[in-house]
Write a protein that binds this DNA or RNA. Structure first.
Length: 446
RNA sequence: GGCCGGAUGGCAGAGUGGCUUAUGCUCGGGCCUGCAAAGCCCGCUACCCCGGUUCGAUUCCGGGUCCGGCCUCCA
């Protein structure tokens, strides 16, 4: 099956041609672990999880790496604020991250390397860059010299002279050129740091991804993924480091970037303060509902987050759950569904196909229900048994509910509809809705 | 200022040079039901504006308006 994807590097949709058919290699930028992730952070997790699930269907092997940034100035600041050790903060946050990802039905990547465990690899790379003349020492820092990289700015479509014109941040005086960026920076005694040939210090932001992707995927790999806001400077700088250190023409063949989650049409972000953490959203909605909502828009378009949108997602998901009751996942995936995903991972179109299958099932085509269930797995949806989905939020005793339903059934068969309706109202007060059908009365909790 | 992306029906959101319909949610009508719910059927003047190309443009090209994003370790 042909897979087409939009490549940020060429700014075009391209046919995906792997470097090696026998092992598709993907790197995605993971979290900086200083605080709980918000819904905006959840989007790349979910999108690239779907990407991997999809690619695993059409290729024999996929190697997926998603790093953890556990050394960063934001971490140092946060730990100080919390009066907590850095190690405690990062360990605690990694655990919370892992719980959030699980709740969103995001599968674990094949490798989840941590920056602090790859300092030596980074130092080795920095050394090569110094030797090759792509980096220089200045005032205790090691800096990458942007002018030594001919294609610098290609990914982001930026041009050095314009960037300098537009620079609005004061340039540090240890930089030869404003666009140069830090590979290694000094730490004070007692601060977080490692001993190196360049003094006691810590790595810059970008070098970890270059070093770790090389370690787990090689000097060149298929897809590098991340949020739109990482294109510049992060990914641009990764390319510069990797291509110069490894003497390669490209780092990743395809660059995929997901759009933002917005709130009232403005980017959800930590600094704006307009964010909702995943753990807070999970208090009101199942992770699968959040997942459905995020997948209901194309990954490159913005999605406006709201609890109204989550409610809609829940209603739509309910419909899919009803139509896929009694089916288990199997390996037969709907062809039309797959062809939606093969077109730049068009998840909204794939979801619309799931709804078409639900309609077909409702009109009597049993096989459509089976296809629906199995296909949904590629999107990480319909994870629960249908009965579980509708009853998992029950607060009252199930025994009590079943008793009331039995009582009502008796009243109905006695044609005592007044009593039957009273019992139904009573259940409704408990948040329990009921559906009578030929096969008996079903109940659910919203 | 430079660069990038977007504008589709009540809402969300795909897609397409012409075709019968995206899809979902909501709302209204009908069927079904003891009544509901679920399900089925039907409906709610959809493609930002102005030019151009074309037999024909929501779709392609140019311009405009509006909205959003990026512009360096930095809060």
């Amino acid at each position: 099956m042909d897979f087409e994807l939009f490549n940020t590097y060429s700014n075009k949709t391209e046919l995906f041609i792997p470097l090696d058919d026998n092992d598709i290699r993907i790197y995605a930028c993971g979290p900086t672990v200083y605080d709980y992730i918000h819904v905006g952070n959840a989007r790349p997790l979910i999108i690239f999880d779907v990407l991997v699930r999809f690619l695993k269907l059409i290729y024999p092997k996929v190697t997926y790496v998603r790093n953890i940034t556990d050394v960063d100035d934001k971490i140092i600041v946060q730990a100080n604020q919390n009066k907590e050790s850095i190690n405690n903060l990062t360990e605690r946050t990694i655990k919370a991250f892992s719980n959030d990802a699980d709740a969103l039905f995001v599968k674990k990547p094949d490798f989840e390397p941590r920056a602090t465990e790859h300092i030596q690899e980074m130092l080795k790379m920095i050394k090569v860059l110094l030797e090759s003349g792509n980096a220089y020492l200045s005032d205790g820092h090691v800096l990458f010299s942007v002018s030594s990289m001919p294609n610098y700015g290609k990914l982001s479509g930026m041009n050095l002279s314009e960037m300098i014109d537009g620079a609005r941040v004061e340039v540090s005086d240890y930089k030869k050129e404003p666009a140069d960026f830090v590979l290694w920076k000094p730490s004070k005694t007692g601060e977080l740091g490692w001993h190196s040939d360049f003094g006691f210090g810590r790595p810059g932001w970008h070098i970890e991804c270059s070093a770790m992707s090389e370690k787990y995927l090689g000097k060149q790999f298929d897809i590098h993924a991340g949020g739109l806001d990482l294109i510049f400077p992060h990914h641009e700088n990764e390319i510069a480091q990797s291509c110069c250190a490894f003497n390669t023409k490209f780092m990743a063949k395809y660059w995929m970037h997901n759009g933002y989650i917005t709130v009232n049409n403005e980017k959800m972000s930590k600094s704006e303060g307009n964010f909702i953490t995943v753990r807070d959203a999970l208090k009101k909605h199942d992770g699968e509902t959040i997942r459905y909502s995020i997948l209901s828009g194309h990954y490159r378009s913005p999605i406006d987050f709201s609890f109204k949108a989550l409610k809609e997602a829940k209603s739509a998901l309910d419909r899919l759950y009803r139509a896929s009751e009694n089916f288990e996942y199997d390996n037969v995936i709907d062809e039309k569904f797959l062809s939606c995903l093969s077109s730049d991972l068009n998840s909204p179109q794939a979801i619309s196909r799931l709804h078409e299958l639900a309609s077909e099932y409702n009109k009597g085509n049993k096989n459509a229900g089976q296809l629906l269930k199995s296909s949904a797995k590629i999107l990480g949806l319909l994870n629960y048994d249908t009965s579980k989905w509708f009853t998992k939020n029950v607060r009252d005793d199930e025994y009590e509910i079943n008793n009331l339903i039995a009582e009502r059934d008796k009243a109905r068969s006695d044609k005592n509809f007044k009593l039957a309706d009273e019992i139904r109202d009573k259940l409704k007060e408990k948040g329990v809705s009921i559906e009578d059908s030929n096969s008996g009365t079903k109940w659910r909790v919203d």
